[in-house]
Amino acid sequence: MEKSFHRFSELFAQLGLRMDAAGIREFLEEHAPLPPDVLLADAPFWTPAQATLLREELLEDADWAEVVDQLNVALRAAKGGPDAE
C-alpha cells in the first residue's frame, strides 16, 4: 500500500479548525506550549471528536501519523510551529 503525504493544513481541516496559515498560527500561539506530561490527544482544548481523531490517526492510520507528530512537536514548542502549507 502506498503512503499518502498530508499537509499540516489538511490535518487542521480534518480537526474542523481553520486551515489557513493565520488560523494555524493563532491556534498554536493560543495553545502552546503543551506540558510534557500531557499526551497530545488528552490536551484540554480538544473536543471529544478531535481527541478521538488524533488517537485513531496515531494508532490506526500511518498515513496521518507524521503530520500528527508535527502537530505534537509544534504544540510543545514555546510558540509557533511548522510552516502552514
Score class of each variant (00 low, 15 high):
Glu2Ala: 05
Glu2Met: 01
Lys3Glu: 02
Lys3Thr: 08
Ser4Lys: 11
Phe5Tyr: 11
Phe5Gly: 05
Phe8Pro: 00
Ala13Cys: 07
Asp20Tyr: 14
Asp20Arg: 13
Ala21Asp: 13
Ala22Thr: 13
Ala22Trp: 01
Ala22Leu: 13
Ala22Gly: 03
Gly23Cys: 02
Ile24Val: 13
Ile24Glu: 01
Ile24Lys: 07
Ile24Gly: 06
Phe27Ser: 05
Glu29Met: 14
Glu30Trp: 15
Pro33Thr: 08
Pro35Met: 08
Asp37Phe: 14
Asp37Tyr: 15
Asp37Ser: 13
Leu39His: 14
Leu40Arg: 03
Ala41Asn: 08
Ala41Pro: 08
Ala41Cys: 12
Asp42Leu: 07
Asp42Arg: 09
Asp42Gln: 14
Pro44Gln: 11
Phe45Arg: 00
Trp46Asp: 03
Trp46Arg: 03
Thr47Lys: 14
Pro48Val: 02
Ala49Met: 09
Gln50Ala: 07
Ala51Gln: 04
Ala51Val: 07
Thr52His: 15
Arg55Asn: 05
Glu56Thr: 03
Glu56Arg: 15
Leu58Met: 15
Leu59Pro: 00
Glu60Asp: 06
Glu60Ala: 08
Asp61Ala: 04
Asp61Thr: 07
Asp63Gln: 04
Asp63Met: 00
Val68Gln: 07
Asp69Gln: 14
Asp69Ala: 10
Gln70Ser: 11
Leu71Phe: 06
Asn72Tyr: 09
Asn72Leu: 03
Leu75Phe: 06
Arg76Asn: 12
Ala77His: 12
Ala77Lys: 10
Ala78Thr: 08
Gly80Glu: 01
Gly81Ile: 02
Gly81Ala: 10
Pro82Glu: 05
Pro82Gln: 08
Asp83Tyr: 06
Glu85Trp: 01
Glu85Asp: 13
